[in-house]
C-alpha cells in the first residue's frame, strides 16, 4: 500500500506549495492558467523534428518556479519521473524513421532519434508547466479560474468535491487494502472476487458518506447554489503577465533562439 500512501503524500505536498506567498502566488489564477495554455500550445506546435528550438522555452518554467519559490529539487524529481514514459513512447520513432537527418561529428543521426529526443523535451516542458501551475496556484484557485473563464458551474463544483474527498477516500482505500494485505499471509496479489467485495464495500461506504454530506449540506440551508468567497482581480499586472509571456512564446516559436544564440556564440568566438 505504499503506492497509495505515496500518492496521497505527493498530492498533499504539491497542494501545500500553493499556500505559499509570492509574486506568482498573488497573481490572479486566470492569468496563470491562460499563460500555461499558451505555453503548452506553443511547445507542442513545433514540428516533429524540432529539438534545439525547444530549449529556450525552459525559461518560463524555471523563472516561474523561482519567482514562486517552489523547491527545485522536488519539481525536478517529479518531472524526471515522466521521462521514462516519454522515452518508451518516443522509442518507437527511431525504429520506424531511419532517414538520416543530422550529423553529429562522424555520427549520422536519424530523424527517429531526433523526434524521440523532441518528444522527451516536450514531455518535460509540458508536464513541468502543469506542475508549476498547480504549485503556484493551487487546485482551488485553478477551479475558480476555470469557472470565471466560462466553465459550467456543475463541473467546477464537481472538481472541488472530488478534490476534497480524494484525501478522505484514498485513506479509506488504503486502510481497507492494508487490512486485506495483513490477512493475506504473504500471498501476493488480490483475486478478482475479493477485489470485488473490497471495492464493493468501499463503494457502499462512499455512497453512505455522500448521503451524510448531503445531509450536512441541507442542514446548512443548501438550496442548490454555491457562493464563492474572496475573489482576486484580473488587473494590469495580470494582463501584462499574460501578454508578456505569450509574446515571448510566440517569438521563441517563430525564431529558433537556441540556434541563434549558438551562431552568435560561434561568431563571437571566431
Amino acid at each position: 500500500m505504499r503506492a497509495i500512501d505515496g500518492a496521497v503524500a505527493d498530492l498533499k505536498r504539491l497542494d501545500l506549495l500553493a499556500t505559499g506567498d509570492s509574486v506568482m502566488h498573488r497573481l490572479d489564477a486566470r492569468a496563470k492558467v491562460l499563460t500555461t495554455l499558451v505555453f503548452i500550445i506553443s511547445v507542442v506546435s513545433f514540428g516533429r523534428y524540432e529539438f534545439t528550438a525547444l530549449f529556450p522555452f525552459f525559461i518560463y518554467p524555471v523563472v516561474a518556479a523561482s519567482l514562486a519559490n517552489l523547491p527545485g529539487g522536488y519539481l525536478i524529481k517529479k518531472i524526471a519521473m515522466v521521462i521514462p514514459f516519454a522515452f518508451v513512447v518516443g522509442m518507437l520513432n527511431p525504429l520506424f524513421d531511419r532517414q538520416p537527418m543530422a550529423q553529429l561529428g562522424p555520427l549520422a543521426v536519424s530523424g527517429g532519434w531526433i523526434s524521440c529526443a523532441s518528444i522527451i523535451v516536450r514531455a518535460v516542458l509540458t508536464v513541468g508547466a502543469a506542475f508549476i501551475l498547480v504549485g503556484m496556484t493551487g487546485f482551488l484557485s485553478v477551479c475558480q479560474a476555470l469557472e470565471r473563464l466560462g466553465t459550467p458551474k456543475p463541473f467546477t463544483v464537481q472538481l472541488l468535491f472530488l478534490y476534497r474527498y480524494i484525501f478522505v477516500l484514498t485513506e479509506e482505500g488504503a486502510r481497507a487494502s492494508r487490512a486485506r494485505e495483513l490477512r493475506s499471509c504473504g500471498r501476493k496479489g488480490l483475486g478478482l472476487s475479493s477485489f470485488g467485495s473490497l471495492i464493493g464495500h468501499l463503494l457502499i461506504r462512499t455512497w453512505l458518506r455522500a448521503e451524510r454530506i448531503h445531509m450536512a449540506m441541507l442542514a446548512r440551508g443548501f438550496t442548490g447554489e454555491f457562493h464563492s468567497g474572496q475573489l482576486t482581480r484580473f488587473g494590469a499586472r495580470e494582463l501584462f503577465f499574460v501578454l508578456g509571456w505569450s509574446a515571448l512564446f510566440v517569438i521563441l516559436r517563430l525564431e529558433n533562439a537556441a540556434s541563434f544564440m549558438g551562431r552568435l556564440l560561434a561568431g563571437l568566438l571566431t
Binding site: 472541488l160 472530488l162 474527498y165 484514498t170 496479489g189 478478482l192 455522500a210
Partner: peptide, 16 residues
C-alpha cells in the same frame, strides 16, 4: 464528487 474520489482510490488498488 465522492464517487470520483472513490474511483481515484480504487484505481490505486491492484488486483491479480
Amino acid at each position: 464528487g465522492v464517487l470520483g474520489a472513490f474511483i481515484f482510490a480504487a484505481q490505486m488498488i491492484n488486483f491479480t
